[in-house]
């Protein structure tokens, strides 16, 4: 009586094994992986470019607002309206708070050049121009709306940058250590 097939296979398991795959399988795989890694390098670049794109978008929106504002003849009045002062305080505090966290990250992690970083600051050229326009035209609703929109866009951009940084689950300190270790 022959033994059971299951038992036979268990007892001769290694004899059923064939030689491993041809070395060209690894060669092909390595090519794929290298190509993938090249692609993977593009992803962080895209992410960084996303920051840049967002900053550029902010610049374009601001530039549009400025063009609109400066192309109109405005009536001058004496000072900021109370609601503008309130908005200034609210948004300035929020923006500065987020900037403080973002600026704690090393420049390499942020992936922003100095011009882009400067644009992130609260009192950039766009802000200064808007502020000046508003000082000259404190009652102009369009300038007020443009300033608020400027604040909101900036806050939104900073939030998204922070989300991106935090999604990497690293703190500024860890990131610094990581870069120091790499160096």
């Amino acid at each position: 009586m022959p033994e059971d097939l299951e038992r036979f296979i268990q007892q001769h398991r290694s004899e059923f094994e064939m030689p491993g795959p041809s070395p060209r399988i690894w060669d092909a795989l390595e090519k794929e992986l290298t190509a993938k890694q090249e692609g993977a390098k593009i992803v962080p670049l895209l992410r960084r470019n996303w920051f840049r794109a967002a900053v550029i978008l902010l610049l374009v929106v601001n530039a549009g607002a400025l063009f609109y504002l400066t192309s109109r003849k405005q009536t001058r009045t004496a000072s900021f309206a109370p609601e503008v002062q309130e908005a200034n305080m609210y948004y300035s505090s929020k923006i500065n708070e987020k900037l403080k966290i973002i600026n704690a990250y090393p420049v390499e992690e942020l992936g922003l050049d100095s011009a882009a970083r400067k644009e992130l600051e609260l009192r950039n050229d766009t802000y200064k121009t808007l502020e000046r326009e508003l000082q000259n035209n404190p009652g102009n609703e369009r300038i007020k709306a443009a300033l608020i929109r400027y604040y909101q866009l900036k806050l939104d951009l900073l939030d998204r940058i922070l989300e991106e940084l935090q999604s990497k689950k690293v703190t500024p300190d860890q990131t610094k250590k990581h870069y120091e270790a790499e160096i």
């Binding site: 059923f16 094994e17 064939m18 795959p21 399988i25 690894w26 795989l29 390595e30 992986l33 993977a40």
Partner: peptide, 22 residues
């Protein structure tokens, strides 16, 4: 992303895995 490390992993398992595929 260390390809050399991945090769080690591949070398450890490719034989048995190839047999499964076969």
């Amino acid at each position: 992303g260390d390809v050399r490390a991945f090769r080690e992993l591949y070398n450890a398992y490719s034989g048995a895995m190839y047999n499964i595929c076969l």
